[in-house]
Computed example of a mutant assay.
Amino acid sequence: MNNLREVWSKRFVFYINELQKYMKFIVSGHLAIVIVFAIGALGYTYSGWLNTAPQDFPAYLVVAFILSILVTLSTPVTLLKNADSVYFLPLETKLGEYLRLALRWTYFSSIVVTLAAYVVAIPLLTRVAGSTREEIIALLIFLLVLKYWSIHTEFNFRWAANGRGVWGDRFLRFLLVLVALYFLLSGSYLFVILVAIVQFIYTMAWVKKKKEVPFPFEHFIVVEQSRMMRFYRFANYFTDVPHIRGATKRRKWLDVFYKLARYGQKNTQLYLVMRTFIRTNDFFYLWLRLTGLAIIGAVFIPFPIVSIIFAAALSFATVIQIKHALLSGYEFRMDLLFPIEKDARKQSVASLIRILQFIQAAAVLIGVLIQGGNSPITFLVPVAVLIVSELTLRMNKI
């Protein structure tokens, strides 16, 4: 196939279909409820904070810092496959057309998150920092340009350096974007021009160096595989992804928890379920992330009702996903050969989830104590975690 545009079109269609196939499991159902509650809670908290925000709050610096991170993270989406390092070699002189399409999609797919953060930052800039309409529009145009510059600079750097030192490049681009955005927001346009000149020189240096080396197929193939694997691992929390296998880790320091499953035939499944949860990275880190988010919400959300809703939504998501993950495997296990009750595994999973959610509630209680809320309602946050977890466990049938 000599037409690389056609190659890209076919791969792009397959890629979109692959995303849609798994996104319908991710976005629908319980996660949609969590997202609605989380957005509502954060929006309510943010709106309330804007009414009481101090006038000396460093709005320009905070907005520039957050947007700089989003602009800097610009990993190219190439959709390259393993065999391309061989089959694309005769077409290497025509590879530019394929890569232009890849970078175009990278830009339009990644700019969405940056624009979402920009929209969220508008009330902060107008109500706290006093930015004008013209300055807000100028920031939008500047963000669109900076994102384009960041994507192409990272791509040229990866090509020229064969993927070595990527984080050093990202740190440097982050500093340049941060300084440029801060000067733009503060009205120092002369310094913005100076930073833009530095950015242009930096990019052109890597463009020139890129021409001296061949295209590093292996590096971009690895980047693409890693990117898709991250998506598949995330999708695997919600549905079975056939071609993914979760990584495991010993975690010897958690062996003390196995003592909760006392020696005996009736606790066989509980012991096996504990080992599966603790040693499987996907399950363990999923619970750890959601618990961490619940703690952060308990510490930083100043409104008790919002904090209760936020923690309850996260506990709901935790129970649903952990229960589905531990019960959804249909592979043969050695424990199936032993005379164990039919529902022993379901009961053991329920027992493990109750232990986990008790720990999560205790961690949220610590977050409430750290916040130092004077209202007794704040102590309902860990109670909500336990109640919602138990109701979800009883009502959800898998």
Rank of each mutant, 00 (worst) to 15 (best):
V319W: 01
N267S: 10
I296S: 03
G246Q: 11
F238A: 05
W287T: 03
V256Y: 12
A311E: 07
G264A: 08
V299S: 09
I295C: 09
T276A: 03
A317M: 02
F310V: 08
Y263E: 06
L293P: 11
A294N: 09
L288C: 11
H243E: 15
Q265T: 15
A312S: 15
I305F: 11
I322L: 09
L260D: 12
L288Q: 14
F238C: 02
F277N: 14
K252H: 14
F303V: 15
P304G: 00
V241I: 04
F277W: 11
G264T: 13
T268P: 14
K259M: 09
V306F: 03
I308H: 05
A313Q: 15
T318R: 01
T239G: 01
G297N: 12
V306E: 12
V319R: 00
K249E: 13
Y237R: 04
P304A: 03
V306K: 02
V273A: 03
R245D: 08
V241S: 05
I320N: 06
A312V: 04
L254I: 02
T318F: 00
L314W: 06
F303L: 09
F283H: 07
K259C: 08
F238H: 06
Y258F: 06
R279Q: 15
Q269C: 04
F310A: 07
R289P: 05
F300N: 14
D240W: 04
I322Q: 04
F238R: 03
A298T: 08
R251Q: 04
G297I: 08
Y271D: 03
L286F: 14
W287L: 11
F316W: 09
S307W: 00
K252F: 09
